[in-house]
Design a protein around this nucleic acid. Structure first.
Lengths: 126, 126
DNA sequence: AAAAGACAACTACAAACGTAGTGATCCCCA
DNA sequence: TGGGGATCACTACGTTTGTAGTTGTCTTTT
């Protein structure tokens, strides 16, 4: 897996669809995305091209000889990269203030709080 | 305070400098930022203009009749907006997965973990 | 076989961004 | 009092992003 490339907003939606289910052809993707983003098929194709250029997607031929797209980078890696850069930008790279911010600005259920506390503990013994 | 406008990467550095200490003139800012970003003064001025246009900054005259810049929006509001949009983009708007991600991907000290757990508890009783 | 779609490759084009350069003023100092 | 620096207002220009349109070919369906 090459290093996670920069993925723009619109591009991210396409990636999500492919991480969710791949490979898909351009038109399948257009249909997949239609409910959320109301994009023309060419828009989807442009985004696909750009993502291939960036090395975020690979292509393959399917049985009927048409092109199909699939991720070339793992979602987790991209999430990490985006998260890293966000944390850098807004919180000067420090995790604690970030966690403080989101802990304070989110309404979590008691259940979720319990889980998170467990995770925090685990993050120490590892 | 108007709603937090969209602030780009480079612009954010300028905002940080002004949230840190304001008002400042363009040349003061250029000096303030020189160590980190090695920008020409005109670059800083352009960013300032754009931020004023966006309503993120206001201007005032100082004693010597030159212009001085200061935030028109609170840092906390901008952080919230950026955080909101990041969470939306990457975690579909859900706080828990975000917190899980950062909790797992950051090495925190025992001290920090303790603080965070306390915060989490407090976030329930409020 | 002609029309209708799918697919692909190019091209388009405006707004936002990053990063300045130019030219006009004005004020201070030697 | 003339030149140099500080300020300003404009302009510039390549890249990235969002969002398509155009054209040409291939295939599938009446």
């Amino acid at each position: 897996m090459p290093p996670a490339p920069d993925i723009s907003d619109s591009e991210w939606s396409v990636m999500e669809a492919l991480w969710e289910s791949s490979p898909q052809t351009a038109s399948e993707l257009t249909k997949t995305l239609r409910p959320t983003m109301n994009w023309a098929e060419n828009t989807v194709r442009t985004l696909l091209m750009r993502l291939v250029d960036k090395g975020a997607l690979k292509t393959a031929e399917n049985a009927s000889g048409t092109r199909t797209f699939l991720p070339a980078v793992k979602r987790e890696a991209c999430v990490r990269a985006e998260g890293e850069s966000f944390m850098q930008r807004i919180f000067g790279g420090a995790a604690k203030p970030l966690l403080v911010h989101f802990a304070q600005n989110s309404k979590l259920t008691a259940e979720e709080v319990k889980e998170l506390k467990k995770l925090l503990d685990q993050s120490l013994n590892s």
